[in-house]
Write a protein that binds this DNA or RNA. Structure first.
Length: 346
DNA sequence: AAAACGGGGCA
DNA sequence: TGCCCAGTTTT
């Protein structure tokens, strides 16, 4: 039996029943694919349900504000996905009459849709012969064929994309693509793959040569850089605080946070107080300051470690218009801020 | 071609 | 606690 037929027969028995597998609506498939980028099903499922519940059609999503979309996305990370999702929904409604593009080439032009997502939507919704290449597919192919070209290189992409396209079941690309991803995710998992009960354990190169845990090969990531964040948590007599929207490109763009002072290294009380003297919010303000967390909180992102201190600034009146603390949960904030808000007794 | 972009899960 | 996971856009 061909690799493809073995995969689809495995899938017919082991397929997980998930809400986005009950539909061919390209809007719903698109939504699920964007949510599932860089995200495990267990984490993404509740977000998918929240989004389809609040925005059942592309028109509903297009009519929302970006702030609302980011709020619903809060906690999922990689927030450019949410910004691009919203921008693309508006584009489809305003320029394409709400009709979803129905080919790989046209899908690829949309913001937030790259090779993987265009291939997934085109095959699942429109039966186009476009093989998906995600982390699960990379893993299965590299092991089964014993290919040690690093997957996170342009050369690796070309090799594995051609191979995935070559073995694609042209009679049923929709089932095939979902089968190979599910197989890679569950049977051919990163650690502890279930080789003993694997349909391919007679033919898999990596299993025969005992290279399962050496594949796929990847170029190692750089070490994360350390950053030192000091958040200014204002508390006024009238129970208001200050939240600012992050405008600049970089992490958390368009999310809200407490006013931030970044330092070169961990700030002592003394250095922080002199920083406040030069800060436009506090230079002319009558306030008291105390450090909330004596031990800094280290929030780890894939590419930077944020050493964070929350400083409580108590003042009679805020230096700029603020927001009532009782409304603070209306704003989309990073998980780091969300955890503080939940923990801090305002 | 390489870097930037979050957060959760698991050993 | 340290390491692993991973599509798209930007540089």
């Amino acid at each position: 039996m061909s690799v493809a037929k073995t995969l689809t027969s495995w899938y017919s028995i082991n397929k997980r029943h998930l809400p986005w597998r009950e539909t061919k609506d390209p809007y719903k498939i698109w939504l699920s694919e964007i949510i599932l980028q860089q995200t495990q099903i267990k984490q993404g499922l509740s977000y998918y349900e929240a989004f389809t519940d609040k925005y059942p059609t592309v028109f509903d999503l297009a009519n929302a504000t970006e702030s609302d979309v980011l709020k619903l996305w809060q906690g999922l990370g990689y927030y450019s996905r949410a910004r691009n999702l919203h921008a693309t929904a508006k584009y489809i409604v305003n320029n394409l009459n709400g009709k979803f593009p129905n080919t790989y080439e046209k899908l690829l032009k949309l913001k937030g849709i790259g090779d993987y997502t265009a291939s997934a939507i085109a095959s699942i919704c429109f039966n186009e012969h476009t093989a998906v290449l995600d982390g699960n597919v990379y893993r299965f192919l590299s092991r089964y064929y014993g290919i040690d070209t690093p997957i996170n290189t342009s050369k690796g992409f070309k090799i594995f994309k051609a191979l995935a396209q070559d073995i694609l079941d042209k009679d049923n690309p929709a089932e095939h693509n979902q089968a190979i991803m599910d197989f890679g995710s569950r049977q051919c998992s990163p650690t502890n793959p279930d080789c003993m009960f694997c349909l391919f354990n007679q033919t898999c190169v990596a299993f025969r040569e005992d290279k399962i845990l050496k594949l796929p090969q990847k170029i190692k990531a750089k070490k994360p850089v350390n950053k030192y964040f000091n958040f200014l948590v204002f508390v006024s007599d009238s129970s208001s605080t200050i939240l600012e929207k992050r405008q600049e490109n970089g992490i958390w763009k368009n999310l809200y946070q407490f006013p931030l002072i970044e330092t070169k290294k961990t700030a002592s009380l003394n250095t922080f107080q002199s920083a406040l003297k030069n800060n436009s919010l506090t230079s002319n303000l009558d306030f008291k300051v105390s450090l909330y967390n004596e031990i800094e909180i280290v929030h780890k992102l894939s590419h930077q470690h944020l050493h964070t201190k929350f400083w409580i600034i108590t003042t009679k009146k805020l230096p700029v218009p603020g927001i009532p603390i009782k409304n603070i949960k209306d704003y989309a904030v990073p998980v780091l801020i969300e955890k503080f808000i939940e923990e801090f007794n305002f």
